[in-house]
Design a protein around this nucleic acid. Structure first.
Lengths: 345, 345
DNA sequence: TTGTATGCGTTATCAC
DNA sequence: GTGATAACGCATACAA
């Protein structure tokens, strides 16, 4: 077991001082060519690498970014995480991942833990619990400490920080507009509690598109779940009692489950009923027929979030004045698959 | 912007020494009740929390565990990661995630980066690149430095360390046995290069089951891809030219894609052809029909890996003697869905 | 050109 | 009971 070597070891072995070694390894011009050579050779030979922790303590920079997401077994978050990781690594940052598990308490605990020096900044999507509770003090504390924060996807206006979201409203609007163009007249929406920012915005877009096309907004065509948890029974009841010819779903699971069910009761997709789901994920792609989806560009979102965060981390905030925070809004894209087709043609 | 408070601040404010503050906050009996009280109150009020980095430097323990996986947008790894995170958090550990992106080079870079003091131990699944290359020096170096390592799922015999895998061979054996019991006679297998440990073992189980049932092992019934990358065209060619009535797939993507294709050419599942896929994931569950799957119990695997790792981290390795490494083998479970059914009944 | 001293925030040993 | 001091590994301002 060969332990890690430190500057001190090298200094002792070579009979020089620690600072000489330190400078030599940074190729400082202060050090004589021969000593530098000697030290560098020795370091390479013994595979010297500076201790990250010591460097962090000294520099007050960890080169770690903390990511807190509600759930990792969720294709969209996973996609964002990949984007974050990809960009972070190019800038020499590591990603520390914590799961809030949709719980307010876990979110708070994880955040406090990481905020004690482990990370240089946060990227996060709010947990369901936090959104339902509406308590953002843990976020406020972090930002007040001067720790940069970027919120993505599930955000709140209560906090002043950089944000990156997709235009959920526009995505829903486009989807419904497409249904209408295709000749659909009874357009349903499967959504969740309005306290979830994404559901609120998507429902707003749905409604707007109907009104802009002189169609009526009918509450009975809305199937609303309290959480993101799927309830197959409710879906069955809904489709058994409600006549619809198009369905927009706030996530792909609801959409896929609905497609499966209506197929079992003899409806044809897309002839009798067509579907569009948010969050173009792996399920949408491999469903039969494929589920037309509003793509959220998770990977891009992650890259942008990481970019915004690292930028904030690296500009020395000498100016204590009013910070400028921006919200990047990405445009969604409709990915057409077998679950939609022109009704009249 | 209220900066983080340190022991030094408290000491200065209260006119005591730093060590007194440190002890008081640890409730040391050495400190007088009143000073202790005073200090604790002040600390609570100003929300003092020790700086993780400084503690790490002092203790030579980071309370971080490094996880290196090939890909995060992959349901199985994601599941394992959740298991790791769940357990780690209960023990006060954070998870630092790095993606090797199936590349040998990235795996090496990430590993070296984290090994320089950022983490107390590693949990990882080998990248495709590493397996194909067969070069495990980066793992050797880490273990030689005394950093605990747990390998899961994609492992190698070249490295002495704790491992946790499922019994891939047995999983395949069970699947094929079921096909045979159901009266299937032309059982195909979709797999990848044999240098991937999982493919090798699963193929071995497939072969063994055939032989044990006095059936012939026919190379022509094997569709082998060079990597885990899907090639839809090859799948189409295979099913267009080969007559089979059952298919075992080493992953769910290959299985799902195959099911979709055979349905388009008019075959009925499971009447004409039945399917079983490895890695029970979200796709298997939501496919039509559902894909019968060999469940790998990723979350459990992650928990066990984390448990093994943390145990190794926390036992002081005073005894330099021969380490005992164990390999935990989890038994797979067959999850039956619509893609299989008794052929003869 | 090289070395000394100091500090990052904490803990632990030892002296008072 | 309390505090000074050293140490973790590194970086750097300042001496020599």
């Amino acid at each position: 077991m060969k332990k890690k070597i430190t500057l001190k070891h090298i200094a002792r072995e070579l009979g020089v001082s620690i600072s000489t070694v330190s400078k030599a390894l940074k190729n400082s011009v202060e050090i004589g060519a021969d000593t530098k050579e000697k030290i560098q050779v020795y370091a390479k030979l013994h595979n010297y690498k500076p201790n990250n922790i010591a460097v962090s303590l000294k520099n007050k920079r960890t080169k770690n970014i903390g990511v807190i997401i509600p759930d990792i077994v969720h294709h969209f978050f996973t996609t964002v995480l990949r984007g974050i990781e990809n960009y972070a690594i190019t800038q020499g940052y590591n990603v520390i991942v914590c799961l809030s598990d949709e719980s307010f308490d876990k979110e708070v605990i994880n955040m406090e833990l990481l905020a004690n020096g482990s990370i240089d900044g946060f990227i996060m999507a709010l947990s369901a619990g936090t959104q339902l509770k509406g308590d953002y003090n843990h976020l406020k504390e972090v930002t007040e400490q001067g720790i940069p924060l970027v919120l993505f996807d599930r955000v709140t206006n209560e906090i002043n920080c950089d944000k990156v979201v997709i235009n959920d409203r526009e995505g829903a609007y486009q989807a419904v507009t497409k249904f209408i163009k295709d000749g659909r007249t009874k357009i349903a929406m499967i959504t969740t509690d309005e306290r979830f920012s994404v559901s609120r915005d998507r429902t707003a877009g749905y409604k707007q598109a109907l009104l802009d096309n002189n169609m009526t907004y009918d509450e009975r065509l809305i199937l609303k779940f309290p959480t993101m948890e799927i309830d197959e029974k409710a879906i069955e009841d809904f489709f058994n009692t409600t006549q619809v010819d198009a369905v927009l779903s706030v996530n792909e699971i609801f959409g896929i489950a609905s497609m499966r069910f209506v197929q079992t009761i003899g409806l044809r997709i897309p002839e009798d009923i067509s579907f569009i789901g948010f969050t173009d994920g792996i399920l949408s792609k491999y469903a039969s027929p494929g589920l037309t989806a509003v793509a959220q560009h998770g990977e891009l979102m992650g890259e942008i979030a990481a970019q915004m965060l690292i930028e904030k981390i690296e500009i020395e905030v000498e100016v204590e004045e009013e910070e400028i925070y921006v919200t990047r809004i990405l445009e969604p894209t409709l990915i057409e698959r077998g679950s939609t087709r022109n009704h009249k043609s």
